[in-house]
Design a protein around this nucleic acid. Structure first.
Length: 403
DNA sequence: TAGTGTTTACATTTAG
DNA sequence: CTAAATGTAAACACTA
């Protein structure tokens, strides 16, 4: 029993207002919206704008209402709303720049101090938002569930989340998902199970609780290298598992139930030859992917003591995730996850940087979307952008400009 | 018992 | 147009 229309076709606004094409999700909803018809640009569409601004103009006016469409496009507003530009890599920037009324629970957001500034920022944003963006905050984000899950995982210090943390992250970030929870949460669970790019990391006895942790498969780094966070060009598949699935269809063989979750897995390109065995389906032994230069994260129990109970294979798995999946700087090492501005690699890298910056910014007493970035945030030249390398214009034809 | 995880089926949307 | 990716629903099993 769901009110289908209200979920599928939010009348209040649309993220894809800058698109001249159909909404990838709800064409019936978005096709009528154009840049010019929008009273302001405070839909989620500003996400791209805001973050691009952050990475290229050092300033991102949250209210683009007065800005003529031409100006927008000249600034890169032709970009697909679903394409997360480098600055966008910070989940913070999504929430705050767009004034969605809340900031995501970054890095666990567990300390009282953090919560305090979080709430303060929330309150400030809410008050500010009232005036001009109310009607656009509850539109469906243009991100696929896979993207949302990826975001949630990436924003966590340990690069893994429980299911409920993923739920919470999404709801904090996108008000749209505060409703019809049963529906989309089912989809989230389905996505987690169905997609090989997500791996289950069992809890350790010292971290009891319900459900496992979910992490990104180390080789899934280039899932979105086409720049389109809305839809991957190719699903990340563990071919070994795929083969298992095929060969085991209608087969009760136990070996079929323990596919390798790491080896033999590959995104689009052909996979490397299988190497090791690993417990089960999605499951990998709990590991501690190197947190990305993140001083906020306290060492976990897993970090604190060696896991001597691991089999060599399991150890290899953990080594894979930690040192192969992520380099010491916390960046994906995957050969495909080069520094494309829209790659997951970028997402991870810059997200971490931005996380920290945003926290520092919140030290001002809450993030003010109207203020210029603080000095330390201004040097974003390391972030790729249209002005830096022309990426947006020449790359990711599926996501940028061409849509 | 509620939350979590898996799986199947089918619809919709998009890329090639 | 087709295949693939994605979204949704639902049934079922498992577990804290």
């Amino acid at each position: 029993m769901y009110e289908k229309q209200s979920l599928d076709c939010p009348q209040s606004g649309d993220y894809l207002t800058m698109l001249s094409t159909k909404s990838p999700y709800d064409p019936s909803c978005s096709s009528g919206y154009t840049m010019t018809s929008m009273p302001n640009m405070n839909s989620y569409g500003t996400m791209s704008m805001g973050s691009m601004a952050m990475s290229n103009m050092n300033y991102s006016p949250p209210n683009m209402g007065g800005m003529p469409p031409q100006a927008m496009s000249s600034m890169g507003m032709g970009m697909h709303a679903a394409s997360m530009p480098p600055g966008m890599n910070s989940m913070n920037s999504i929430a705050s720049v767009n004034g969605m009324g809340s900031l995501p629970p970054m890095n666990g957001m567990s300390s009282p101090m953090r919560m305090e500034s979080f709430n303060r920022a929330q309150a400030i944003n809410r008050a500010r938002d009232k005036t001009y963006r109310r009607s656009y905050t509850h539109a469906k984000p243009p991100y696929s569930y896979i993207s949302l899950i990826t975001m949630a995982i990436q924003q966590s210090p340990n690069k893994m989340c429980t299911l409920s943390e993923i739920y919470q992250f999404i709801m904090d970030l996108f008000p749209f998902y505060r409703q019809n929870q049963q529906r989309w949460q089912n989809s989230i669970r389905h996505s987690l199970s169905f997609n090989d790019c997500f791996v289950k990391v069992p809890r350790t006895p010292d971290r009891p609780g319900k459900g496992s942790y979910w992490a990104l498969h180390p080789d899934s780094g280039n899932m979105f290298e086409n720049g389109c966070y809305l839809r991957r060009q190719k699903r990340f598949k563990c071919v070994k598992k795929e083969m298992m699935r095929q060969s085991c269809s209608g087969d009760d063989d136990d070996s079929c139930k323990s596919p390798d979750s790491r080896d033999g897995c590959s995104p689009s390109p052909p996979p490397p030859p299988p190497q090791n065995h690993v417990p089960s389906g999605h499951e990998i032994p709990e590991t501690k992917p190197e947190p990305m230069s993140n001083e906020h994260s306290a060492p976990t129990p897993v970090q604190q003591h060696e896991r001597h109970d691991m089999t060599p294979n399991i150890r290899h798995m953990q080594h894979d995730i930690v040192s192969q999946g992520y380099n010491p700087a916390g960046h994906l090492n995957h050969p495909h996850s080069f520094n494309h501005p829209f790659s997951i690699n970028s997402l991870i890298t810059d997200s971490a940087k931005m996380d920290m910056k945003m926290y520092e910014m919140q030290g001002y007493g809450g993030y003010n979307p109207h203020m210029a970035l603080p000095p330390m945030s201004k040097d974003l030249s390391h972030m790729p952008g249209p002005d830096n390398n022309g990426y947006y214009k020449t790359y990711a034809p599926h996501s940028v400009g061409s849509l």
